[in-house]
């Protein structure tokens, strides 16, 4: 359940940012969560409900951008969509793959008032 730690980090970041704007409520929060980021979304949703309770994030509309995994093959120089960390390069079958997208875990923006 590292998702709860992740949610608590999001809450910390959001509250800190809101305080800097003297905001009393967070209306919206936008997150980037990559598909290769080890976040299980069901666990995340469960943790979210608990984590935002009695904070100014409690009623915020949450928008999650799921960013697809992308790999770059060091052998054949192709870039492609990567669904699993153990997938081979679809062009040459190699495994020397650098991940170029999909690991994101980011608070992108807030709407506060």
């Amino acid at each position: 359940m590292h998702e709860l730690s992740v949610v608590m980090s999001i809450v910390d970041i959001a509250l800190e940012q809101a305080a800097k704007k003297d905001a009393v409520i967070i209306d919206e929060i936008e997150l980037d969560i990559g598909c290769l980021s080890t976040i299980e979304m069901n666990a995340f949703e469960f943790a979210w409900k608990q984590g935002v309770k009695r904070t100014i994030l409690e009623r915020a509309v949450k928008k999650v951008n799921r960013i697809k995994g992308k790999g770059h093959c060091s052998d054949c120089d192709h870039t492609f969509e990567l669904e699993n960390l153990y997938d081979a390069c679809p062009f040459c079958g190699g495994y020397l793959i650098g991940i170029t997208a999909g690991k994101e875990l980011r608070v992108k923006s807030l709407v506060v008032s």
Partner: peptide, 10 residues
């Protein structure tokens, strides 16, 4: 209402 661009790694 204000939009705050955070762009911070969780």
């Amino acid at each position: 209402k204000k939009v705050v661009d955070v762009e911070q790694d969780i």
